[in-house]
Design a protein around this nucleic acid. Structure first.
Lengths: 243, 243
DNA sequence: CAGTGGTCTAGACCACGAG
DNA sequence: TCGTGGTCTAGACCACTGG
């Protein structure tokens, strides 16, 4: 007898997760409380344990639950939440904003990696990399400025490409699939060069993103991206992520 | 006969995901290519389809694969990647950095919500909220400055709490579990007040985070957090998320 | 040591949507 | 229409780890 209850078209695991979330939000289960184990919940919700497991893992990923073998599942004492930033191709960002995209390479040369950066990347200092500086424009106004170091050893096809024509950013995103990435955001006062290239004033507060990527061959790129003054990077929280 | 192959202690789905990732990274499967369907991969990897499904969903979450019913699974044309920011309790951040935590409320009053903020929150303008300004210190030095609006209707217990003593941030994180959140990062030049409270100079570039949270009763809080100059917010990418 | 979550499996049915 | 992913189930064994 398949008694699929009326009114719940969404996946069962989703419904279970929502119900558990409700109980937490409404303090039926308080922070630090232990909640029933999977087997019990499976009975209560008339579901297989695997389904309950999926639901609870979802909530644990959100940081709402704390799960440990033998110790059971507890409502997280401090609901650390996670937010997700999506890193897309610059051109698409610009075009999505309804602006005409343009791109200009300001400088490109081979150059040994500076010690300061090398240390940060855990890479031997002084290796020769491709260094390039470029500006992305939206409707003719500078949108972001990037200062990029590329490791040709990790992106072997790159040298065949004419970076002055193509877009290294795009090339990399499309061709140099990475396995690991690190991102940081910070704020910097625009220096002389930033100001000139972004057509703004020295000292302007700029949102700066540093991004490093690696693949199996090692470090691929290190980029400093400085955004146009006033730019915001938004995140949607991972709450309703795909289940 | 449980022929668990030697050398692979990690979950099978994990191994499958890694192998698929390898094939993509090494161009065996190129961007846009269709990859074998779950059933075939299940045979190849000698696994149940559910296990393959789990692995592929993982990669799809990472943005590496594009999956559609009937159309099959393809290597994403443009591997949009996602990074994850974790929002934790300030005190813990500070203490994790090995510093002594301190907290000071600078101002607190009931006040109607300004139009500018109300518009942003999709909340009727002029509703009376709790407005507070506070500073978080690490080892006596200002760590971050927060300017917060709290909706008492969505956090009914709050009024009982002595916010001057306790930490509203902590109180909220512990008690006002939210269902939805939005975050943005931007850079601002420190204004007179920022500079004074953060003990820095006017015009300093500050990393600023705006965060809004909602629960089932509506909007809970809107905060502007200004970090100490030089502060970085780091993200680890979602790659090896729990499986 | 034993309870709890972690994972896998084989089989099943369903929903979507490309052709 | 019908292939493909989405999800569920019942059962099983294992891996941790608290007591």
């Amino acid at each position: 007898m398949t008694d699929r209850q009326a009114g719940s078209t969404s996946p069962k695991a989703h419904n279970i997760a929502n119900e558990v979330r409700r109980r937490i939000v409404e303090r039926e289960w308080r922070q630090g409380d232990r909640i029933p184990d999977e087997a019990d919940l499976a009975i209560e919700f008339d579901a297989a344990r695997a389904t309950v497991n999926k639901a609870l893992q979802l909530l644990a990923d959100e940081g709402l639950l704390d799960r440990r073998r033998r110790a059971g599942t507890r409502v997280a004492i401090d609901p650390v939440r996670k937010a997700t930033v999506t890193i897309s191709i610059v051109r698409e960002q610009v075009e999505q904003a309804g602006m005409a995209y343009n791109y200009r390479v300001v400088a490109q040369r081979r150059s040994p990696l500076p010690a300061a950066i090398a240390a940060r990347l855990d890479v031997p200092e002084g290796q020769v990399m491709i260094h390039m500086r470029a500006i992305h424009y939206g409707d003719g106004r500078p949108f972001q400025l990037e200062d990029r170091w590329i490791n040709p050893r990790a992106a072997p096809d790159l040298e065949k490409t004419d970076l002055w024509q193509l877009n290294a950013n795009e090339w990399l995103v499309r061709n140099a699939t990475y396995l690991r990435a690190e991102l940081t955001f910070s704020a910097e006062n625009a220096n002389r060069r930033d100001a000139r290239l972004l057509q703004t004033g020295t000292g302007q507060a700029l949102l700066v993103m540093h991004r490093t990527t690696w693949n199996d061959l090692g470090f691929i790129t290190f980029v400093r991206v400085a955004f146009q003054p006033g730019h915001r990077v938004g995140t949607e929280n991972g709450e309703n992520r795909g289940l």
